[in-house]
């Protein structure tokens, strides 16, 4: 059980992000929650590909070569990180525009001001 602790950490981070998205009223905190969900997905991918005692899949000055961790989940995580960065940038830009337009970041206020 204690050996499977990383899966538990993935679940906890996902639930924290879900809590922030559902219950926070500040848009910046909602953006942080979305980023936490992305981080939990990336961590799940990395954890899935780990072999006990494995080294990184890079042969430069690797020393004695033994087991190596699976390279494909790491490559997909690299893709996912860059896409998460792009969505974060777009999300924060839209939040800045919302603040400029409404003068507040509270989602209840923004909903109330809907014309």
């Amino acid at each position: 059980m204690i050996g499977n602790l990383p899966y538990l950490v993935v679940g906890i981070i996902f639930l924290l992000g879900l809590y922030a998205v559902l219950f926070e009223k500040n848009l910046i905190k909602i953006a942080i929650g979305v980023s936490l969900i992305e981080a939990s997905a990336n961590l799940l991918l990395i954890v899935l590909g780990y072999r006990t005692g494995g080294s990184i899949p890079v042969f430069t000055l690797a020393g004695k070569v033994g087991k190596m961790v699976l390279p494909v989940p790491q490559a997909l995580t690299l893709t996912a990180i860059v896409i998460g960065l792009a969505t974060s940038a777009l999300m924060l830009s839209l939040i800045m525009m919302l603040y400029k337009h409404y003068g507040t970041l509270d989602v209840r206020e923004i909903r109330r001001l809907r014309g």
Binding site: A89, L92, L113
Partner: peptide
């Protein structure tokens, strides 16, 4: 990435310049 940084910073300046005006949804 540096263009994202630059445009977001210019967005802050855009807010500061128009900060004295009345803001609102209308």
């Amino acid at each position: 990435l540096s263009l994202i940084l630059y445009y977001m910073f210019k967005g802050i300046r855009l807010y500061e310049e128009s900060g004295s005006e009345e803001t609102g949804h209308d």
